[in-house]
Design a protein around this nucleic acid. Structure first.
Lengths: 249, 249
DNA sequence: CTAGGACCTCACGCGACGTGGGGTTCAAGC
DNA sequence: GCTTGAACCCCACGTCGCGTGAGGTCCTAG
């Protein structure tokens, strides 16, 4: 009588060809996402084809990062799956931007440690505290939302491009400094391409977003000393110089 | 007698201006990362300045994603902090690439759901299964490492650029199809720019990595039917056509 | 009939706390 | 001095998706 369509599997078999563990299948039964529709007389689990299909769905949904609980209700009731996925995407995006920020911090630290050669752990600890304090300062000027947008833009435009732009700042600042040292007038045509590039680099930071631009300016104004010392930022005089150059343009 | 330097704080105060909760401070004591150096006669915790400094370090390290356990040993013994950070960076990178892959999957699904308008949850479920099956196929051709490299390149080059390239494929395929329909010879100069662009787009997928290229070709060969039906991929004839065009070049 | 492999059901562990619950202690107002 | 409410104390379970034994039963081939 056991014809086609009545195929059943025991946990071990199911585990083997789904790549899950037996314990996982037990757990899925405990929380009610995949309950085998039959048992043998002695209590061994028997999964049929419907169970198998359900299991595949569960795995697919789990791989999207959904919780077992939401998967359970999803497969039980008629739930707005599209909405759920949107929420999940939102959630993933947020985690991504947090993780990217973390990676940036970590790689800065590792780079510093590498370039300083055999840096002592205590010095590195001090550096870490410094960085975390910087982050805090940064967070005072840019809202959660703005920081997320910055990460977003970083992703869209590509890490490599951004890195190149960041690397360009010190060079640009040095060249402007040369002109200032030489007593060149801000309206001098030799300054124009420098001032223009300056504006372009700024543009590509804030991307035309006024809020971002204002926050950046405010942070620069209120912390110019620190930024100059630690990161080679421009002096207020240099900024005034560029502004006069742009005004003359 | 309580002069400067003897300032102490109770948990509540500490919690208020570090932004942590009282429970968190209790927990930090339980696991031994920040233990208040004194207690009042009645058992209330008293943190002094040393404790406060230690707490700031703990928070900074925790924000780098380190576990409380490793922070504890780190602050106790002389541990290779730089090495720890390198490991952590590695770990974060791996999580990042996994999360990026997840985001890509999710946004594909959400886009599909949106473009299909009011798609039924059951249809969407079928689609999810399909996508997860596709992922599985994909994983058969590209190793873990290769997939991570693909995500890596995607991040470096920028989402926007990649999206534009992907959007270009169907157009390019249609134009080549037109030439084939018109009976144009592969060596015809009109085909040359098309074939060249074809090669460029391929290049920017594998980025010169032979392993990636070979895997891609193999996947295309062995699944050309499915790829053509579901994603409008090129037919084997078209690929042969482009190859002849390149040979003639 | 026996061995060993597959199955069963508890039940604790993980990590960084959140969240009560039930009981002291502190500081201010009467 | 007494009361009241805020702040403190400790204990202990819950979270999430299983991993990892422990101790026992069942199945199947030799």
């Amino acid at each position: 009588m056991p014809e086609s369509g009545d195929t059943t599997w025991k946990v071990g078999e199911l585990a083997r060809f789904t790549g899950l563990t037996v314990r996982t299948l037990h757990h899925y039964e405990d929380v009610g996402v995949v309950v085998p529709s039959r048992r043998t007389a002695s209590g061994h689990r028997l999964y049929d084809e419907r169970d198998l299909r359900r299991l595949y769905r569960v795995v697919a949904l789990r791989d999207l990062g959904l919780s077992l609980e939401s998967i359970r209700t999803l497969l039980a009731d008629e739930v707005d799956l599209a909405g759920l996925l949107r929420d999940q995407l939102d959630h993933v995006r947020r985690r991504l931007s947090a993780l990217r920020a973390l990676r940036t911090r970590l790689s800065t630290l590792v780079d510093t440690a590498d370039s300083a050669g055999d840096i002592a752990s205590t010095d590195l600890l001090a550096l870490i505290e410094e960085v975390s304090q910087m982050e805090e300062t940064f967070a005072n000027y840019f809202s959660q939302d703005q920081r997320a947008r910055l990460e977003q833009r970083r992703e869209e435009r590509g890490q490599r491009v951004i890195d190149a732009e960041i690397a360009e700042w010190p060079q640009l600042i040095a060249r402007v400094q040369d002109e200032m040292d030489a007593g060149t007038d801000p309206s001098d045509p030799r300054v124009r391409p420098l001032a223009r590039r300056w504006t372009e680099l700024l543009e590509s930071f804030h991307g035309g977003d006024e809020g971002l631009r204002d926050s950046l300016y405010r942070m620069q104004r209120e912390n110019s000393e620190t930024i100059r010392e630690r990161h080679g930022g421009p002096s207020p005089e240099m900024i005034a110089f560029i502004e006069r150059a742009n005004a003359a343009d």
